[in-house]
Design a protein around this nucleic acid. Structure first.
Lengths: 245, 245
DNA sequence: GCAAAAGTGTTGGTCCTACACCCATGA
DNA sequence: TCATGGGTGTAGGACCAACACTTTTGC
């Protein structure tokens, strides 16, 4: 116990009506925005929708929504994901708050950005929704609001995070070859990696399960297919300190 | 440019009145809470204030305030710091949003937690404010709201962050001995470190400036005093990838 | 048989860890 | 002179980077 606890409580006026107190605070509309990354054709993609605001006609927007009453923001982000991609059990993490009072043309709106990683093949894109498209992360233009900035922040966050934890597997199919895995890392980090050292590193982690299967639709010698051992990783997460390249 | 950009815009109804749109969003009171760490007597401390709510009488609270209209949250956090400690130029970084609808007894209040590191000696504590106290981070009890949880999150964040970047210097006086620096790291990480290896590691970083001065009020051989080269660090920050212990 | 990628081991160097002794100062 | 922490160097091991050739498959 802290020694400080024994200090006498001074005679100040304590606030009794907490509801009144809270009612006196300024209120702000809150949204969540999901930066949903996918990996396809050896490129990192982000899922965007056409803006439905006249003022941003022909511009692209992140998937987001305002937070409902009594909804935690993380729940709101999962809800957006579920509604837009039909997927649950998606990797999702909070990245940063964006609170510039002028970021929304309709008045102050605060947004919390979430980064999400999903396997593009699992995702049926709710094809009816033809306003949704996967865009290359490199060279994005034409974004509504401050969404370019939000994507940039999330992309940098991802580059850093993927060195610390093996998140990349969330972007791959259940079964993947080491070549695909390496392509993924090369695409995200924007570097070339040595193939043998890369394989050694991942085998050394001991989180890959050999399926015994092989690629089949490739015009060259097929590679062995692996699964990621999510369970084992969950158990050993605590001691995790990083992946170096 | 993305190939997608050439897709025809479908005939949907675009929203014209963005102010009306924003006005229809639910609104939430927003606060910032600052987890202000200091280092004193070889222990990591956090700056707390007695809660001014009747319901949390005799409990401790983080320093926070609601965000004013048109105030960025980071600015609000700096404002809180300035008002409470009199200090500007303090290290400050956003950590996480806490949005549980029941976290505040007066109704929904969303808070964004900031982690701040300051040199406890620079801080005059505005002594008149006898409601402010430095508490040991270890063994905190008796916290108002979800502030224990917020402190825990920030403390873990700090443990991780201090391995990646040399932030610890923000907690030390301008001039410090290597022993003090090591005590700081040991206190934060809660480990024992080898003295020789620790010194080698920090000298190898080449971010310490030898002042040529020595400690003077110690009951043993005085240690050499160093300054941290903040400028040099700022320049080389980009390539920074971590400190290993 | 040729193109394309899969698969595999070794070596040298770097960096980290572990560890023990003498030195300067105050009391 | 003693107690306390300051200051230093080295040897062994772990880990990482760099690097080339053989294998398998599709065409």
């Amino acid at each position: 116990m802290n020694d400080i606890d024994s200090i006498a409580v001074p005679e100040t006026t304590l606030i009794k009506d907490v509801h009144k107190l809270v009612a006196s605070y300024p209120r702000v509309p809150i949204t969540v925005d999901c930066v949903i990354f996918g990996f396809d054709e050896n490129e990192l993609k982000v899922l965007l929708i056409r803006s439905d605001l006249e003022i941003y006609k022909d511009k692209w927007s992140l998937l987001g929504d305002f937070a409902a009453d009594n909804e935690e923001l993380t729940d709101a982000a999962y809800r957006v994901l579920q509604q837009r991609t039909g997927m649950t059990n998606v990797y999702l993490e909070e990245v940063k708050t964006f609170s510039n009072p002028h970021r929304h043309p309709g008045g102050r709106v605060l947004t919390v950005a979430y980064c999400s990683l999903l396997n593009i093949e699992h995702h049926q894109l709710k094809r009816m929704d033809n306003e949704l498209h996967w865009h290359k992360v490199q060279g994005l233009t034409n974004m509504a609001f401050d969404h370019k900035e939000i994507i940039d922040e999330c992309y940098h966050w991802l580059q850093k995070r993927i060195m610390e934890h093996p998140l990349g597997f969330n972007l791959l199919p259940d079964k993947f070859s080491l070549r695909e895995l390496q392509n993924l890392y090369e695409a995200i980090l924007n570097v070339k990696l040595d193939r043998r050292n890369f394989r050694k590193k991942f085998f050394a982690m001991d989180l890959l399960i050999d399926t015994g299967e092989y690629e089949d639709d490739v015009p060259h010698r097929p590679g062995r297919l692996y699964k990621f051992d999510f369970k084992k990783y969950e158990c050993s997460k605590r001691k995790w300190s990083g992946i170096d390249f």
